[in-house]
Computed example of a mutant assay.
Amino acid sequence: MPWRVPPDQRQAGVRPDPYRIWLSEVMLQQTTVAAVRAYFRRFTERWPTVGDLAAAEDADVMAEWAGLGYYARARNLLKCARAVVADHGGLFPDTRDGLLALPGIGPYTAAAVSSIAFDRPETVVDGNVERVMARIFAITDPLPRAKPRLSALAATLTPSARPGDYAQAVMDLGATICTPKSPACGICPWIAPCRARLMGIAAELPRKLAKQPKPVRQGIAYVARRSDGAWLLERRPDSGLLGGMLGWPGAPWGDTAQEQPPAPADWHDPGIEVRHTFTHFHLILSLRIATLPETATPITGSFVPGDRFRPADLPTVMRKAFDAASATFDYD
């Protein structure tokens, strides 16, 4: 992982960069390592220090984040970077409490950064650690009800020596050996004290409450291209889903799709639907397509010239809509 400093280098005096640890932890929230690697490299190449990120344009950061999801993280990233520069001289606080005072940093991220970057004996509990603890201590209470107990048990194991290495080791144990399905108990370094293995229930833990079915919301995405090649886009409000991101105009999503065209035009219904799943609901977007004259005055949104428009700057659901609609336009 490009943000890691191996134990042998740490013992030789190489310290992790708090900026890189913080950035990786924010990116990894509800996102896999595989998905984060490329984003992390792009961010650190473009903005190698927290000062560089603090000075970045909001739109540039949101565009680089496009496709990673949970876009409030990107907005909080900028707020936090600017607070570190403005209030701390560009240096991250080295304690959990100091980190908690920064915008967008919660208990998990504060514990992770203080432990991994500064070797503070804080207890770091992510989903992988919860699974390891549930099995080591044979906790059969289901998640999320068992979370406080699992955190308390994890705290009893957190060492004062090399807590940063320990925190990363337990997370790695859960990610590679104590996996959700078919845990590799035979090669686990904690095979002896694992109560769930002794009871023969390791693969069953942690138990989880049954998930409620996700509701389905409907919407319409109006994909319009002006005759000179410009695209009609709108930036979503900073608060709410996909906040601050570029997207195709349309009415709010709800139980039914509402027609709310962003400009007078001969809107064509190609019979295309785009489907996307968010954390709390499934979305079905119906497409409307139009080619607008150069004199068009939109009711909502604004035109982005064709040579400045990058589909990669769109969040995933809006890029899906572009991919589905773009074949209907004549690019000649």
Rank of each mutant, 00 (worst) to 15 (best):
T109R: 03
D119A: 14
A74F: 09
P107W: 05
D87M: 05
A55M: 14
F92E: 08
H88Q: 04
R42I: 00
R42D: 14
G67E: 04
E45Q: 15
F92C: 08
S115E: 07
D87V: 09
W65S: 00
Y71H: 13
Y108E: 02
V113E: 04
V61I: 01
T44R: 02
L99M: 06
P93Q: 11
R120T: 07
G98R: 08
A117L: 07
G89A: 04
Y70N: 10
T95R: 02
W47Q: 02
D94A: 12
A63D: 14
G104T: 09
F40Y: 13
G98T: 07
R73M: 03
F40E: 03
G106V: 05
A101S: 10
G51E: 14
D58E: 15
Y70T: 01
V125P: 10
L78A: 12
F43K: 12
G67A: 00
Y108F: 08
P93F: 05
G106E: 06
A54R: 04
T109N: 03
M62L: 15
F40S: 08
A117E: 11
L77S: 08
G98A: 00
A56K: 14
D97S: 14
A83S: 15
E64I: 05
G104L: 07
G89S: 07
F43Q: 05
V85N: 00
A111V: 11
A112F: 09
V84E: 14
T123Y: 01
A110R: 01
S115W: 08
R37V: 11
D97L: 08
D126R: 05
L68P: 09
A72L: 08
N76S: 12
R82H: 10
F43C: 11
E45W: 09
P48Y: 15
A101V: 04
T95Y: 01
